[in-house]
Simulated assay, not measured.
Amino acid sequence: MTKTIEHKALVELGARHVKQLGFPVIATELRAWGTNEEADVIGFRASSSILIEAKCSRSDFLADARKPVRSAGGLGVYRFYLCPANLIQAEEVPDRWGLLWVQGKKVVSVKAPRGNLWPPYDPSPDSGDWSHFMHEPSLKAERAVLFSIARRRSLSRTEEKYEAAVHRANLTADRLARANDSLANENRDLALKLSLATLGANSEPNAVARPSRAIPRRRIRRADDLTG
């Protein structure tokens, strides 16, 4: 594993850690209808759930920690950030969040409840130390995720490969759309500079540069558009 741990490697370590904690139903980087949240790692047991968000940079962590869903609703009764050692400090995580570090190929608890009970959501003092790490999750969002997991497990191998291909195609389409927007902006900037340069080089005192034609922005079609 390289010194700078990639996001994919963090997610894999996080999923393995969640399984070791006793959450048998696990999904990684899952999108589901009914919630805009895409959990890096989500795990379920009979009466509880756990969420892990993997972060490779401080800028990504700081932006993520400001999301409203991190403090109200969202996925997971228990929630953790997972990062390379020392990237995030315990006092920086949002209220009731835990923190896990990756050291080598091991996941180390920096801020977490003691024991391995993982009781269901109950913020009363009777829950002891666990109540300090509990969130009231969005039941609608968690149902949507559980349905998505169950649906995936019921698919045939061919259907599973098809859905994975669609997901990859959508990611590529999103990336190309962003690249297309960036190139369109660059083209407009270059056209403006050319127009100004032409105006400055023209010897006629009353010459006015012709406005450049707008560069059309092409829409990148997602796989969803093709199958819908």
Rank of each mutant, 00 (worst) to 15 (best):
2 T>G: 10
7 H>L: 02
9 A>C: 05
9 A>L: 08
15 A>L: 00
17 H>G: 01
17 H>Q: 07
18 V>N: 06
18 V>K: 12
19 K>H: 13
21 L>T: 02
22 G>L: 11
29 E>C: 01
31 R>H: 06
34 G>I: 11
35 T>W: 12
35 T>G: 13
36 N>S: 14
41 V>C: 11
41 V>M: 09
43 G>D: 04
44 F>C: 09
44 F>N: 09
45 R>I: 02
50 I>T: 06
50 I>V: 15
53 E>D: 13
53 E>I: 05
60 D>A: 02
66 R>F: 15
70 R>S: 10
74 G>N: 04
74 G>Q: 05
76 G>S: 07
77 V>D: 03
77 V>S: 03
79 R>S: 06
81 Y>F: 14
83 C>H: 04
85 A>I: 11
91 E>P: 00
95 D>C: 10
97 W>R: 08
100 L>C: 12
103 Q>I: 09
104 G>T: 15
105 K>T: 15
106 K>E: 12
107 V>M: 00
108 V>D: 00
112 A>P: 02
116 N>C: 07
121 Y>L: 06
121 Y>E: 04
127 S>G: 04
131 S>G: 08
138 S>M: 03
139 L>N: 13
140 K>W: 06
140 K>C: 13
140 K>D: 11
143 R>K: 15
144 A>Y: 07
146 L>K: 15
149 I>V: 15
153 R>P: 01
159 E>N: 02
159 E>A: 10
161 K>I: 11
162 Y>C: 06
164 A>D: 13
167 H>F: 03
169 A>N: 00
169 A>Q: 03
181 D>W: 09
185 N>E: 15
189 D>R: 14
189 D>N: 11
191 A>Y: 03
195 S>Y: 00
197 A>P: 00
200 G>A: 05
201 A>T: 02
206 N>D: 15
206 N>A: 14
208 V>M: 04
209 A>T: 13
212 S>P: 12
215 I>P: 00
226 L>K: 10
